[in-house]
Design a protein around this nucleic acid. Structure first.
Lengths: 375, 375
DNA sequence: CCGCAAAATGTAACCGTTTACATTCGAGGG
DNA sequence: CCCTCGAATGTAAACGGTTACATTTTGCGG
């Protein structure tokens, strides 16, 4: 009955409604498997009538190609891997979202693996993804250079996200530029004594933001003052703690710049608890524009990072690398940030020994609407 | 030299450092592929010495098995799919996180696909995952029953997450019980005029929470008052708008119960903007205990849902279904919620026509620490 | 020293596709 | 009428593993 010779000497009993294979479709349509394959992939010449038959047979059998077989044959999985340090919080979910959207549009699937605190565990995961994916987007902001290079040796296209910039493909946020833009904004409002809450020591984003802050401070204060910098680790808790220290500094700073929004939220909560009025007595700004930033009280002024866009870029770059592994020239793209002015910072009160007048531009710029200016 | 007869008549030029195959390992170790397979899978008897040789060969060749071939052969992919409506926000990332952790521990990978607003698109995605995954966790809170049943017909283990409960495997939050527990808390504090901000009409979670609220209100107020219910859609914006309406109700409610935390955050922001003091003039509570809840001002009293646990349970159930597809009895598990008391609600002011005394228990319970009581 | 069971290993079929190459079939030109 | 050529289709060899079954070793009692 079937035109396919049953090669199996002793067919295993399939326990359940087995999925139809290409052979079943071929038999039903009265053609060879090659023809079925050609019809379904639509690349080669097939007579219109034959094509219809095949399509009908496939539909009636609810045929879905077996991807494992297919990818074994064509050596492609149409899947990319995403390796994250830890899928906590809104930042990571936005990254995934951005990549997912871009990938699906191109017919790609995404394999996600999060929660990799240490590099060895990460490399491990990368190995188990071997063969399962055509390329990787790896986010490892806390990892030092060496393991990342080893990762490249795995001979698979890899795009690094927000990691210490190595040679090879990478996408990063313009942290340095963003931090400077934020400092410019504060300075224009008249602030000169600006405290900074740092991020984790080994985090690439955190370092760049700190660098931007320091550079800007050199242009603002004659003598750099290390006392204005507090340590933090990107968590609300650490922001909370840092704010207490800031509030007790001798000449009290008029503004606090937290290296990310989570810490800024902590700072805000801490100051409120301590009875320090924001923005009247102290201005607070953050970085990232996570969704909550808009809903804390007062609403937080921050640098927006279009995280989904970050993911989208990463996928685009990866796709390019997968497309022509040979001719692909490694790129390092930087995505810009946007200043979003809300209510959490104002003009500092006049104080002795300070410039008596706030900077000229201050007044006019105070209430830039959402998505204000590009840094 | 190699013991493997080169069956390929005309080996394709491999463009790049091709990955070693099991044949290469076998050749290098001087054994057959079967032996290599046995060593690497560790199931069958192999002489210790042989085993060492094979392992050494594998390591020196940096051999990693090709998963496509493997899953073609054993008809398993060691991968599960996660289908989400939209990977926005902390809720979804926590779900992914929970599943990821559980899955990795069992050697499974996860294939994620988010952003499916409509059912047809979702079914589509499910089809493309066919063969790529051993089972699915599907989250479709807004979807009506019919498509979900069709999904089951796809003949693959499926666990539904927070969806309108059908027959088959499912995990849901105890929304009804949680809502009632929250109402009990408010009532014990002395509140009787309690407004409710509803979630999306077709959302299963939202409906259950509303049901819990209504049930509780029947026990509190003699005449049910629909005017106390405001519509909302789980977004901060809708909470913001709803709060304005609540504040203008004739006998003003003394408490607002928002069907989720995002809306509660909106409510808080709105009341603050309108000059209504929380909790002195009005108490506000939410549901979910998203991370921000702790950092808004005042900190939000809410029902905690252990979202990662939800994901973990879902994976466990799915694994069971994958394990014995035949003997598996469909289950419907419900995960409990926990009351977390913070600062956003207090004892209502005495008012005419009200019970003059707050409920007995109120005082003593006011400041239960984090992770207070199980509902 | 033989025989035999158990242990270790090898052989090759099979999983379901894709695709290079072979084959068939018609049509058109000489 | 034969030959050639191109279009349509078929055949079967990969792809890289797993595993049932066959074969070879090994250990040991008689």
């Amino acid at each position: 009955m079937t035109s396919r010779p049953d090669v199996r000497s002793n067919p295993r009993p399939r326990n359940r409604a087995a999925a139809a294979t290409i052979h079943d479709v071929a038999a039903r349509a009265g053609v060879s498997v090659a023809t079925v394959s050609r019809v379904l992939n639509g690349k080669e010449l097939v007579r219109e009538e034959t094509s219809r038959h095949v399509r009908a047979a496939a539909k009636s059998l609810r045929y879905v190609p077996n991807v494992a077989a297919r990818s074994l044959s064509i050596r492609r999985s149409q899947t990319i891997g995403i390796v994250l340090p830890d899928v906590h919080g809104e930042f990571f979910s936005e990254v995934i979202r951005g990549i997912d959207l871009a990938a699906r549009a191109k017919g790609y699937h995404i394999l996600v693996s999060g929660s990799h605190s240490d590099p060895s565990q990460m490399l491990n995961v990368v190995d188990t993804m071997r063969g399962r994916v055509d390329g990787l987007v790896v986010m490892a902001p806390d990892v030092t250079l060496a393991p990342l290079d080893e990762l490249r040796a795995r001979a698979m296209p890899v795009v690094l996200l927000n990691s210490a910039t190595p040679n090879g493909d990478a996408i990063t946020i313009d942290n340095y530029g963003g931090a400077r833009a934020m400092m410019r904004h504060l300075h224009e409002l008249g602030h000169t004594r600006i405290a900074f809450v740092r991020g984790p020591q080994h985090n690439a984003d955190a370092r760049e933001r700190l660098r931007g802050y320091r550079h800007a401070m050199r242009g603002i204060a004659a003598v750099p003052n290390k006392a204005l910098e507090c340590s933090g680790d990107f968590t609300e808790e650490s922001g909370f703690a840092a704010a207490r220290r800031v509030a007790e500094l001798k000449p009290r700073p008029t503004a606090v710049f937290a290296a990310n929004d989570s810490m800024a939220v902590g700072v805000l909560a801490s100051l409120t608890a301590a009875g320090v009025k924001v923005p009247e007595e102290m201005s607070v700004v953050g970085f990232d524009d996570i969704p909550i930033a808009r809903y804390v009280n007062p609403a937080l002024t921050t640098m927006r990072v279009d995280i989904a866009e970050l993911g989208r870029c990463a996928f685009g770059l990866l796709l390019d690398a997968i497309g022509n592994p040979a001719a692909h020239a490694p790129r390092h793209d930087r995505v810009a940030t946007t200043l979003v002015v809300r209510k959490s910072c104002g003009v500092p009160k006049l104080q002795p020994k300070q410039n008596a007048q706030p900077h000229r531009a201050a007044r006019g710029r105070k209430r830039v609407p959402e998505k204000g200016e590009v840094s």
